[in-house]
Simulated assay, not measured.
Amino acid sequence: MRVGVIGGGQLAWMMAPEATKLGISLLVQTPSTEDPAAAVTETVLAPLRDAKATAELAARCDAITFENEFVDLDALGELEKQGVIFAPSLSVLAPLLDKYHQRCYLRDIGLPVPEFISWFGDEQSSFLGKWPLVVKARRHGYDGRGTEVVHNMTELMAVWQRWGRVPVLLEEFIPFERELAVMAARSRGGEIAIYPVVETQQENQVCRRVLVPAAIDPKVAAECETIARQLLQPQSGPAVVGIFGIELFLTDRGQLLVNEIAPRTHNSGHFTIDACEISQFQMQLRAVCDLPLGQTTLKSPGAVMVNLLGYEHSRSDYRTKRQQIAAIPGAHLHWYGKAESHPGRKLGHVTVLLESPEFAMDIARKVEYIWYPASES
Results as ranks from 00 to 15, higher is better:
L11K: 04
L11A: 06
L11I: 08
G23C: 11
T30C: 14
E34W: 09
V44G: 06
P47F: 00
P47Q: 06
D50I: 05
E56C: 11
R60W: 05
V71C: 11
A75D: 09
G77V: 00
L93E: 02
L93V: 01
L93K: 08
A94V: 06
A94W: 08
A94C: 10
R103Y: 11
L106I: 09
I109M: 14
P112S: 13
P114D: 06
E115N: 13
G121C: 07
L128T: 05
G129Q: 15
L133N: 04
D143V: 02
G146V: 04
L156M: 10
Q161V: 04
L170M: 10
E171A: 03
E172M: 10
P175W: 01
E177D: 13
R186M: 13
R186G: 08
I194K: 08
R208C: 11
R209T: 12
V210E: 04
A215D: 15
A215T: 08
D217Y: 04
D217T: 07
A222C: 12
T226G: 12
I227W: 07
R229Y: 04
L231N: 01
S236G: 13
V241H: 01
F249K: 12
Q255T: 09
L256T: 02
L257Y: 09
E260M: 08
E260R: 05
I261T: 03
I261V: 15
A262D: 08
H270T: 07
T272P: 12
I273P: 00
D274K: 09
I278T: 14
Q280A: 06
Q284M: 14
S300Y: 03
A303E: 10
V306E: 03
L309S: 07
Y311S: 06
E312T: 13
E312P: 02
R315H: 12
R315E: 14
S316Q: 13
D317S: 14
Q324L: 15
L333V: 10
L333M: 10
H342D: 10
L347W: 00
H349W: 06
S356R: 15
F359G: 01
P373Q: 01
S377I: 00
